[in-house]
């Protein structure tokens, strides 16, 4: 037990761990921003995984062709939007089962990006790091939050912007109404399925951007296994956070920290079972959901399709 605590102390006093945690958390946060809005509108959008991968691939291609990280990020976001377009119209215009659509899209994107990556062979590299003056001098966490590749900094304005959108605009109010009581929203003149589609679109835009960040800000080389369940962990973070932005970001930081912990533990020379470490982010995700999922009240109409006249 003693060695466990020294190991924990070692890891927690290491700046690299924090930097890694923020990098992992940023990807989850990109997805969680859009996913929170989509889920507040009533869509449990499981194609996030595919949106990240599609975004990463499009980002890689964009960078490969133009050599510009910003254009890569735009491509990434656009490809996430494209996937969202298919998902939203199939599940909220045609009333196909949203989980089936999401799952099929995930597999389609996986196949597509693997197939096309062999054809295009995009060559990319991660964007340069740069520090924000003064702030990156904060001990321990300064470097983690403010000395990172620049695409990561996009998350800082994105979070308050999504919050403002959901809680301070008429549109956000309608989104929340649609997720809580679609029948009432419908009666008061809101196009329920349109708002839900828009929620999914937004989720696609931010998740695609997350994918672009993953390839151009974090990893730097495309590989079709690069997402590895992160999309699902982002959904878990939203549930963990009780469908609020504050909670979801806390969830992202927690899961990011676990991911970073598992990588830095062996790097700092501590022995641990490799299988246990690989499964750790997933185990922690399941355990936290087990503890917290039933405490918070979910949007009442979450994952229930809306068809006028059917209740």
């Amino acid at each position: 037990m003693g060695s466990f605590f020294t190991a924990m102390g070692d890891v927690l006093s290491n700046e690299v761990t924090f930097a890694g945690a923020v990098r992992f958390a940023a990807l989850l946060a990109f997805c969680a921003c859009g996913e929170t809005i989509a889920e507040r509108a009533g869509t449990l959008n499981i194609s996030v995984e595919g949106m990240i991968l599609g975004g990463a691939f499009a980002g890689a291609c964009g960078y490969h062709v133009t050599g510009s990280v910003s254009i890569g990020l735009v491509c990434a976001s656009a490809s996430g939007f494209l996937i969202a377009l298919i998902h939203a119209n199939l599940s909220h215009r045609l009333a196909a089962n949203t989980f089936v659509v999401g799952l099929a899209l995930n597999i389609l994107v996986l196949g597509m990006s693997a197939f096309l990556a062999n054809y295009v062979k995009p060559s990319t590299r991660a964007a340069h790091k740069f520090g924000i003056p003064v702030l990156d001098d904060i001990p321990l966490v300064g470097q983690a939050f403010f000395y990172q590749p620049w695409p990561l900094y996009l998350i800082y304005p994105l979070i308050p912007f999504s919050w403002w959108l959901l809680y301070r605009t008429r549109w956000g109010l309608e989104i929340r109404a649609v997720g809580e009581n679609p029948q009432s929203a419908d009666v008061s003149g809101i196009d329920v399925n349109k708002r839900r589609r828009q929620g999914v679109y937004l989720s696609g835009l931010t998740s695609g951007l997350g994918g672009g960040y993953l390839i151009l800000g974090q990893i730097g080389r495309f590989d079709d296994a690069m997402v590895g369940g992160q999309g699902f962990i982002a959904i878990a973070a939203v549930i963990f956070g009780g469908w609020t932005f504050r909670g979801a970001i806390a969830g992202c930081l927690l899961f990011g920290a676990v991911n970073s912990f598992r990588l830095s533990l062996p790097a700092l020379g501590h022995e641990a079972n490799p299988e246990f470490l690989s499964a750790l982010p997933f185990l922690v995700t399941i355990l936290t959901m087990m503890l917290f999922a039933h405490r918070t009240r979910q949007p009442t109409a979450l994952a229930q399709p809306f068809i006028r006249g059917l209740k």
Binding site: F99, F232, A236, I239, T285, I286, H294
Partner: peptide, 10 residues
């Protein structure tokens, strides 16, 4: 009340 769609996949 954990959504099974997540746990089964994780």
């Amino acid at each position: 009340r954990v959504p099974e769609v997540l746990t089964t996949l994780l």
